[in-house]
Simulated assay, not measured.
Amino acid sequence: MVAKVGSKSLWDNGSICGKKFNITCTGETNKYLLHPCTGKYVVVKIVDYCPECYDDATTFHLHEKAFETISLLYAFDVKIDYVQIK
């Protein structure tokens, strides 16, 4: 699966492009949806930068299928942990 980086500092002029990350949902960002996480993880490859992703407010912009793997799709935005895979 693929993803875009929403963080300008993490994008670092494209140095992260092509790298893989293990991403897990850790919780909600919306107080009305208390348990959005599925308990699963997803591995994504960074393919682009997402300038419309609010500059550092969004770490990763996941493809819909990747997001649906870690969270309820209608959650829209969740807290995550991520680890680069070497």
Rank of each mutant, 00 (worst) to 15 (best):
Val44Lys: 10
Ile85His: 04
Ile23His: 11
Asp56Gly: 07
Met1Tyr: 14
Val44Arg: 10
Val2Asp: 11
Leu73His: 14
Ser15Ala: 12
Phe67Gly: 00
Met1Phe: 15
Glu68Ser: 09
Ala3Val: 01
Ser15Arg: 15
Leu33Lys: 01
Leu72Arg: 14
Cys50Gly: 03
Ser7Tyr: 10
His35Phe: 08
Leu33Met: 06
His63Lys: 15
His63Ser: 14
Glu68Leu: 05
Thr26Gly: 08
Asn30Glu: 04
Gln84Phe: 06
Gly14Asn: 11
Lys19Asp: 02
Ala75Lys: 06
Val83Thr: 15
Lys86Trp: 06
Tyr74Asn: 03
Val47His: 09
Tyr41Leu: 05
Leu72Lys: 15
Lys8Met: 06
Ile16Leu: 11
Lys86Tyr: 12
Cys37Trp: 07
Val47Asp: 06
Ile16Phe: 09
Asp55Thr: 11
Lys4Met: 07
Lys31Asn: 04
Lys86Gln: 08
Lys31Asp: 01
Val47Trp: 08
Gly18Met: 10
Lys65Glu: 02
Phe76Met: 00
Asn22Ile: 07
Cys53Gln: 04
Ile46Phe: 09
Cys17Glu: 12
Val83Tyr: 13
Val47Pro: 06
Ile85Met: 06
Trp11Glu: 05
Ile16Asn: 10
Lys79Val: 03
His35Gln: 09
Glu52Trp: 14
Glu28Asp: 06
Lys20Asp: 00
Tyr54Lys: 00
Asn13His: 13
Tyr32Ser: 01
Thr24Trp: 10
Lys79Gln: 07
Cys25Met: 12
Val83Lys: 14
Gly14Pro: 10
Thr58Lys: 08
Ser71Glu: 08
Thr38Arg: 06
Thr38Asn: 02
Ala66Thr: 01
His63Pro: 04
Tyr82Trp: 14
Cys53Thr: 01
Cys37Thr: 03
Gly14Tyr: 12
Cys25Tyr: 12
His35Glu: 04
Ile23Val: 15
Asn13Lys: 14
Ile80Cys: 00
His63Gly: 07
Trp11Gly: 05
Val43Tyr: 11
Ser15Gln: 13
Asp55Leu: 09
Lys45Cys: 01
Lys79Asp: 03
Phe67Arg: 00
Gly39Val: 07
Thr59Pro: 02
Ile70Asn: 00
Leu33Arg: 01
Asn13Glu: 11
Ala3Ser: 11
Glu68Asn: 11
Thr59His: 06
Asp55Ile: 10
Ser9Thr: 15
Thr59Arg: 08
Thr26Ser: 14
Leu34Ile: 04
Phe60Thr: 01
Asn30Gly: 03
Asp12Arg: 13
Val5Ala: 13
Leu62Gln: 08
Pro51Ser: 05
Glu68Ala: 07
Lys19Pro: 05
Phe21His: 08
Ala57Met: 09
Thr59Cys: 04
Ser15Thr: 13
Ile46His: 09
Val83Pro: 04
Thr58Arg: 09
Ser71Pro: 06
Thr26Lys: 13
Asp81Phe: 06
Met1Thr: 14
Ala66Arg: 04
Cys37Arg: 09
Thr24Ser: 15
Val5Arg: 10
Phe76Ile: 00
Ala57Val: 05
Ala75Pro: 04
Tyr41Ile: 01
Trp11Thr: 04
Ala57Pro: 03
Thr59Asp: 05
Cys37His: 08
Ser7Asp: 15
Glu28Ser: 13
Met1Val: 15
Val2Arg: 13
Phe67Glu: 00
